[in-house]
Design a protein around this nucleic acid. Structure first.
Length: 615
RNA sequence: GCCACCUUAGCUCAGUUGGUUAGAGCAUCAGUUUUGUAAACUGAGGGUCGUCGGUUCGAAUCCGACAGGUGGCUCCA
């Protein structure tokens, strides 16, 4: 809000939201209005048309009405009135949602709408003192409770476009009635709007679901079920390379791999506390033999605690660090599923360190360093969120422990010079988290890496170690996943790379194209494949009866890092001219290399996980 | 789970107000060709129009349920 440009854009968007509401009220005089805040790139307005449902088909007439209002150049006038009077106004004009907000405002001096601050609600609630009066803005025959500011008149807004209509619960609570939320984008100039819409078109091209299909990385099957992705050979190479890197980073720092079954008696989760909190989201498994109630594991920490608990531990043994990349299963609601970003079979590159209190700091440092190394190598910039508890009773453990845990996480983040933001209500029920957030192609944020500090689980499972003075003490658990979930990570990573994977994790690293199908050529190509495979390079051959041009085109579309055409010239000489994928190449010139030198260079690049070629 | 929208060949899409045997490009297969850095030529196969039910003389087209998907909301250990 500091600079003028931001302020003005904000006013433009907010004013456009009012124009939207005005237009809807003219077309549907019975409309009951919710809130209409500014959001990234635009605005929305929540409406309730009683029985009628708006659809995108209605947008043309709404937009036409909006343009009429804009043409009319109605000035935005600010009015002020005491809260009590405002309640009367809301009642008089049949606006129950506004009335509810005003009543709350009157009662407590603030509104409780979750995650919507007073500014977004358009309320005049400032500071924490009791609010005496609220402001309204009027344009033409439309008046709305609103803090402002607005542009001077309706013709001073910029370019806008209604985007979609979606359901949204009143005040974000599932039990409340569902309103319709009309989303629009708005910018100061038509050019900026066009640029934004073009950007969205570009983003569609790198949508991980589209690329997953085009590059043959993963599929879904109606017979298998929704939210259950199947990874093809190519997709499996990609995920295993990434998982191997993630594991390596922690093995280097003292973690050891463990393995656990994918199901367990539900007793395990009753003990951990997960059953009480997430029981309805577990898949149940029935034994035909015993009376055991089994569940598919929705997470791994309880299993890992049982490995720790299997023998007495000394303070000298700590830290004990387990690493496990394994699938968990969660019965996510159908409407929450989407591509790879939200699935029901979730691979976690999970780890749990059991440490003494004096080892917490070092452990968190190690994990933050691992995360930095991973995302640095991948060229991804992440936002760091400190996920704290809120005042609700959704958390286990004493408030003192929580305060101490949150403080230690914050110190670690500061010590590692990470930029961060803090958010209440985002913690796990057993402890606070450092979450790393990545953005997808259209700017939606997803949590990837996470480091969590947990004093609760060791206590619930009665985990102990013997201290120097012979007494028993609970270890502290540090939970960590670097990719987070392989699936969700891939959804972001595929979009981040647009499917142009670096050599080290590219499913296909080199493609050899034969100029013709003569025996001599085929034989030569085979000998090159043998050499490349001998160096561990993922190499394929295109011997098909197609033109060289077509085979090159095909290799380009598969986004393969290196393509080599082999024919008479190569058989005769010992040099070849690799075709290097554009984003990898340092310059555009095609150069020739000795066969062995070329292969060795590529093999080294793959091993060292570099993002650019040195060829 | 809730709201809106979508579902035609492996993929991307046509299909006129309900009216005969549902089309195209790419991909696949066969033949011709033996190719030099982003698409050679010819031909063939491939669809109970997501599934089930209804309305109708007649349904890809209209209605309903279910399944799957998209965008949001809610949730996310």
């Amino acid at each position: 809000m500091s600079d003028q440009k931001t302020d003005h854009l904000h006013a433009v968007r907010h004013s456009t939201a009012h124009i939207l509401a005005s237009a809807i009220q003219r077309l549907w005089p019975e409309v009951k209005l919710g809130v209409g805040p500014v959001v990234e790139n635009g605005f929305y307005y929540d409406i309730d048309l009683g029985g009628e449902q708006l659809s995108a088909d209605d947008f043309p007439r709404i937009e036409a009405e909006m343009h009429n209002i804009i043409k009319a150049a109605e000035p935005f006038e600010r009015l002020e009135m005491p809260v009590l009077e405002a309640v009367g106004w809301a009642r008089k004009y049949g606006q129950p949602y506004k009335e509810e907000l005003l009543n709350d405002l009157q009662r407590s001096g603030t509104t409780f709408a979750k995650d919507l601050d007073a500014d977004e609600l358009g309320l005049a609630a400032e500071g924490d003192s009791k609010v005496e009066s609220v402001s309204f803005y009027r344009n033409g025959d439309f008046t709305d409770l609103c803090r402002g500011p607005h542009v001077e008149a309706t013709n001073k807004v910029g370019a806008f476009k209604l985007m979609r209509v979606a359901g949204a619960y009143w005040r974000g609570k599932e039990g409340n009635p569902q309103m319709q939320r009309v989303y629009g984008v708005a910018f100061e100039t038509p050019k900026e709007l066009r640029q934004y819409l073009d950007m969205l078109e570009e983003a569609k091209k790198r949508d991980h679901r589209k690329l997953g299909q085009e590059l043959d990385l993963f599929v879904f099957s109606d017979l298998v079920g929704s939210g259950l992705p199947l990874f093809t050979p190519r997709g499996t190479v990609l995920r295993e390379e990434l998982e191997a890197f993630s594991n390596e980073l922690r093995k280097d720092r003292g973690f050891e791999k463990v393995s656990i079954p994918h199901m367990t008696k539900k007793d395990l989760y009753e003990k951990s506390g997960h059953w009480a909190k997430f029981g309805s989201e577990l898949f149940l498994v029935k034994s035909q033999e015993t009376s055991d109630e089994l569940v598919l594991k929705p997470m791994n920490c309880p299993h890992h605690t049982q490995i720790y608990a299997s023998r007495p531990r000394s303070y000298r043994d700590l830290p004990i660090r387990y690493l496990d990349t394994t699938m968990v299963y969660r019965d996510e609601k159908t409407g929450e599923l989407g591509g790879l970003s939200r699935v029901r079979s979730i691979t976690q590159d999970d780890s749990h360190a059991f440490v003494r209190p004096d080892q917490i700091e070092q452990q968190i440092d190690d994990l933050l360093a691992s995360a930095n190394e991973l995302y640095g190598t991948l060229g991804m910039k992440l936002r760091v969120r400190l996920s704290w508890r809120d005042e609700s009773d959704a958390y286990l453990g004493s408030t003192e422990l929580w305060a101490s845990a949150q403080k230690q996480l914050k110190n670690a983040v500061i010590a590692n010079k990470l930029e961060y933001f803090e958010q209440e209500g985002e913690a796990a029920f057993y402890g606070p988290k450092i979450d790393f957030m990545a953005s997808d192609a259209i700017g939606r944020e997803h949590q990837v890496a996470t480091v969590q500090l947990d004093f609760v689980m060791p206590e619930r499972f009665g985990l102990e170690y013997t201290t120097e003075d012979g007494s028993a003490q609970h270890p502290v658990m540090v939970h960590c996943a670097l990719l987070g979930s392989t699936e969700r990570f891939l959804s972001v990573y595929i979009e981040h790379t647009a499917g142009r994977f670096p050599v080290w994790n590219a499913p296909e690293q080199i493609r050899l194209i034969s100029v013709n199908q003569e025996e001599e050529t085929i034989k030569f190509v085979q000998s090159v494949v043998q050499k490349a495979k001998g160096l561990g390079l993922r190499t394929t051959v295109d011997n098909s009866n197609e033109s060289v041009g077509k085979k090159i085109r095909s290799a380009e579309m598969w986004k393969i890092p290196y393509t080599v055409v082999l024919g008479e010239k190569e058989i005769g000489g010992s040099e070849l001219v690799p075709r290097i994928r554009k984003d990898l190449a340092v310059n555009d010139e095609a150069k020739s290399y000795a066969l062995d030198e070329f292969l060795k260079t590529v093999a080294n690049e793959a091993k060292s996980r570099v993002s650019k070629t040195s060829l």
